[in-house]
Simulated scan of single mutants.
Amino acid sequence: MEEELIELGSPTASKRVILLHGLTGTASVIRPVAEYLCKRLGEDYSFLLPTAPIIKVKQFSGEPAHAWFDVKSSDFRREADIDGIFESSDRIASLVRNEISQGVSPKDIYLGGFSQGGVIALTTALLEPFAVAGVFAFSSYLPLEDQLTSRMTDVSKDVPIFQAVSLKDEFISQEMSDKASAFLRNRGNPVLIQNYDMKHEIRNRELDDVIEWIKSLA
Rank of each mutant, 00 (worst) to 15 (best):
I193P: 00
N204W: 07
R78F: 11
E87Q: 15
D146E: 15
D83H: 11
S101P: 02
S89Q: 04
Q116T: 07
F138K: 01
S181Q: 14
I172A: 04
P190N: 09
K168V: 06
T153M: 15
E99N: 13
D158K: 15
F114A: 09
I92P: 03
Y110Q: 09
F183E: 00
G103S: 03
I109K: 05
M176R: 11
Y110V: 10
D146S: 14
F162I: 01
L127N: 14
V165H: 12
D158T: 15
K179N: 09
G117R: 05
G117K: 05
S140H: 03
V210S: 01
F138L: 13
I82P: 00
E212Y: 10
I193G: 00
R77D: 14
F86E: 00
P160M: 04
R91Y: 15
G134Y: 00
F76H: 07
D75G: 10
E175N: 10
N204Y: 11
D154N: 15
F136W: 13
G112S: 13
V96T: 01
F138G: 02
F114G: 05
D169L: 06
I193L: 12
T124A: 06
K168R: 14
S88F: 02
V132P: 01
V159G: 10
E99A: 10
D178Y: 10
V96Q: 03
K157N: 15
D158G: 12
N189T: 02
D81N: 02
D209S: 14
K107N: 12
S181D: 14
A164P: 05
S94K: 11
A93F: 02
R205F: 12
K107G: 05
P143Y: 15
R185V: 09
L184M: 15
G117F: 02
W213C: 04
S140W: 00
S173F: 07
G188W: 07
E212K: 14
G118E: 01
F183G: 00
A164V: 04
V132S: 02
S73G: 09
R77W: 09
D81P: 03
K72F: 12
L144Y: 11
R187F: 12
F86L: 07
R151Y: 13
F138C: 05
V191D: 07
F136P: 04
L207R: 08
V132D: 00
V155D: 02
W213Y: 05
D90P: 01
S94Y: 04
D75L: 08
S173K: 09
A121D: 08
I109W: 06
R187Q: 08
Q163D: 12
V96C: 05
K199D: 13
A131F: 04
R205M: 12
R151F: 13
S140K: 03
